[in-house]
Nucleic acid binder design. Structure first.
Lengths: 217, 217
DNA sequence: GCAAGTATGTTGTTAAACCAACGGAGTAAA
DNA sequence: TTTACTCCGTTGGTTTAACAACATACTTGC
């Protein structure tokens, strides 16, 4: 396995924390690493959970179990990504989703109460950790708000225009990092219908585009 | 004006904080009260803002200024409600929305850095304040996630069924606190079309309802 | 270059939401 | 009781998305 710091240094939770402080924090809050085989359950829906998880290697699937017994994938998480922090911070101790190892993987667990409580040695990095956690939640919040703004639009055209408006800088030109399939999934519309709408918008003189390069007119 | 503590004690930020600690905190973090006349600008989009606001009396409107010059209301906030915390925590110092006094009002401002920084006397209540802020953001997060789950559904029927599934307890029966207009707004569908769909769902034997009392079958 | 596969755009059909307009039930005030 | 108003359901016409099926690049490995 790569160095843990190398894996996690770009995770929002550790922004601004150097390698020495990083390892000090890990020991200070009693972090634990556990290994799972593909298919193992990391958290089972309803479990009492007081930890957040960080994927060090492999991949996990976060699933929602519906009332009718069906379950669907909410998201898949890769190396360096975090899960469980929203439930931990929200004070929900029985986690309402199931987390499965999609591949053999290693997970670093941090106890939530130890993250937010000041440690015995009351190290200064706790403050940074907490600040990062606040930032992380708030930024996710903003992201979700933007997504809701988009999904509140009724038509594909409106959703595209709002999405473009959020993407573009001061100039009207920008490149998007998604293919049509992914873009359609984000906007919750059908791919081919979206393609058709894009063409119509171009014909109507609203936009110009070529592959992933767009221009608002 | 009523006692500030009375107004704010039920705000999530102050959960678990008693009246003495409350006033200690206010002085400790240098809270300020400002008054506004109806129509006054509290925050202007683009302003450098490092404070969160709490409505003590009156009402404010949070507006988004679109690129085309139009502006639309994102939300209205009443007594005891908070604004600006998401931007503050996300590290966005230039607030991207405009806040207007919809009526004459009084706002309590708290400096964000003083909320999260430990104070000179390093009082214990900061910890609680921070924990509350984390909880507040995380819970909003969960709420937004649920909303996105609903809006991701393509049809009115699917949105209704998911909404009902989230509302209902163990029994299939529940009462909703919204009228049809409000429900339609939440689900981002058209009121009359939703009414029609509800009728069809009843005819199809999926649900029973009478006014705001629903039953999943 | 060729074949296979992937991504994107096009078209016509079907199903569904939107929209406007209206009717009926319930409520509250005059 | 009458009037006005609000809320909710219904209906028919219009618009639009979903869907399936296909066409057209573009890419990649051989």
């Amino acid at each position: 396995m790569k160095d843990i710091f190398e894996i996690l240094k770009n995770n929002s939770l550790f922004i601004g924390i150097g390698i020495e402080d990083f390892y000090k924090i890990l020991s200070c809050i009693g972090a634990q690493i556990k290994s799972y085989r593909r298919g193992d359950v990391v958290f089972f829906s309803g479990n009492l959970v007081s930890e957040v998880g960080l994927v060090l290697s492999g991949r996990v699937k976060v699933m929602r179990e519906a009332a009718d017994g069906n379950s669907n994938i909410l998201t898949e998480l890769y190396e360096s990504e975090m899960f469980g922090e929203t439930f931990a911070c929200a004070g929900i101790d029985h986690i309402p989703v199931t987390v499965l190892a999609a591949e053999d993987c290693e997970i670093l667990f941090l106890n939530y109460r130890k993250i937010i409580g000041t440690c015995a040695s009351s190290c200064a990095f706790h403050t940074k950790l907490i600040e990062n956690m606040l930032m992380l939640l708030a930024q996710k919040n903003l992201f979700l708000n933007r997504k809701i703004e988009i999904l509140s639009k009724r038509s594909t055209r409106e959703r595209l225009l709002l999405f473009f408006d959020l993407q573009r800088g001061v100039s009207g030109k920008f490149t998007i990092p998604y293919n049509r399939e992914e873009l359609a999934a984000m906007l919750c519309v059908e791919r081919s219908a979206m393609s058709a709408e894009l063409s119509r918008m171009q014909a109507d003189g609203l936009i110009r585009f070529q592959k992933n390069e767009f221009e608002l007119l």
